[in-house]
């Protein structure tokens, strides 16, 4: 009896120590990542206009209706469309830049690989704001370096204009993909390196050529990595913010008005943060972020499940 008691006591103490070791980080995590979801619920049910609003009334689910009505929807739809288009092009860069790079690097011997790696990872050092500024430096209508270069070489007759919405919609995601090309390449490459040597050798013995090898050995084996890259790309693209700021989204560049910028402006403009007029109330901003990102979270959950099913 006493032995059992002391055992139990020891177990409790052990548990308590475990909790104490986990506590600091778990506390911060709860405060900054989990609690916002709890706080969001009362925020979205009221008519909280901005962070200085003293007179807050409970209005129920009206915010979820009003964001699809006149003053907000005119800002929301273009922002949503732009973000979706950005996501699409940005996602395709995974297969334009990263996957071919990973396949090439997989076949290459170590010494040359290092030199290429140095350059491929270099854009990762650039900040999002920096990328936005870099884009305006390269593609501004009159002063863009690439524009001037291409015009001089006679490759284009009329300079591209980054203020033109279709050019922004193409150039921004492409360069954003270029920035993360190294990271995603590493993601794919680590999948390729995990393929058992026997599988590849068996294919070689059976005389499959390179494309068959890619199609039937490499790609099926790195499906989990592709899924992870998909999830990260999807969430990253929908949350894109820094690049827009670098392109002057808060200084009234309408082409850089992506979803996150809209949410930011709804929260902070009227409180003197942004400079431009508020697009809607704070509560509506929270409503938009919940309405848009919650389906996204479910989608990633679904993709995660799918990935586990597809894994060999």
């Amino acid at each position: 009896m006493t032995r059992l008691q002391s055992f139990k006591r020891k177990k409790t103490i052990d548990n308590a120590i475990d909790v104490a070791f986990c506590a600091p980080q778990l506390l911060l995590y709860t405060l900054f990542t989990l609690l916002p979801f709890v706080i969001a619920i009362p925020m979205v049910l009221t008519d909280y206009a901005n962070f200085l609003d003293q007179n807050v009334k409970f209005i129920g689910l009206a915010n979820f209706i009003s964001i699809f009505k006149s003053p907000v929807i005119e800002q929301l739809m273009p922002a949503l469309g732009k973000t979706a288009a950005f996501t699409l092009v940005n996602y395709s860069t995974l297969f334009i830049f990263s996957l071919p790079l990973a396949l090439i690097m997989f076949e290459m011997n170590a010494r040359i690989k290092k030199a290429y790696f140095t350059v491929i990872f270099l854009p990762l050092m650039l900040s999002g704001v920096g990328l936005g500024m870099l884009i305006s430096m390269l593609f501004s209508m009159d002063t863009g370096s690439i524009n001037l270069l291409l015009t001089k070489l006679g490759l284009i007759s009329k300079p591209l204009d980054i203020r033109d919405s279709s050019i922004t919609a193409l150039v921004l995601p492409l360069l954003s993909g270029w920035r993360y090309a190294g990271y995603n390449m590493a993601l794919f490459l680590s999948g390729l390196l995990a393929i058992p040597k026997e599988t590849i050798d068996a294919g070689r013995v059976d005389g499959v050529n390179y494309w068959q090898r890619v199609r039937h050995i490499y790609l099926p084996q790195i499906v989990p990595n592709i899924m992870i890259a998909t999830v990260l790309c999807l969430l990253g693209s929908f949350g894109i913010f820094d690049e827009c700021i670098g392109l002057g989204a808060l200084q009234g560049n309408p082409n850089a008005q992506y979803l996150s910028v809209l949410i930011y402006r709804m929260g902070f403009s009227s409180a003197g943060g942004g400079g431009s007029a508020a697009a809607g109330t704070l509560s509506q901003g929270v409503a938009i972020s919940l309405a848009v990102y919650t389906p996204l979270l479910f989608l990633t959950f679904f993709l995660n499940k799918l990935q586990k099913k597809m894994q060999y």
């Binding site: 986990c22 778990l26 995590y29 405060l31 900054f32 990542t33 989990l34 609690l35 916002p36 979801f37 706080i39 969001a40 925020m43 962070f51 999830v231 990260l232 969430l235 990253g236 929908f238 949350g239 913010f241 979803l259 996150s260 949410i263 930011y264 709804m266 929260g267 902070f268 704070l282 901003g285 929270v286 972020s289 919940l290 990102y293 996204l296 979270l297 990633t300 959950f301």
Partner: peptide, 25 residues
């Protein structure tokens, strides 16, 4: 606890930006 920490990977910062501001300030 481990899985809870893993959740962080799929929560975009812009989603929780406004409530987070309220919490911190």
């Amino acid at each position: 606890v481990y899985n809870t920490f893993m959740l962080q990977m799929i929560i975009p910062l812009t989603m929780i930006m406004l409530p987070l501001y309220l919490i911190v300030t």
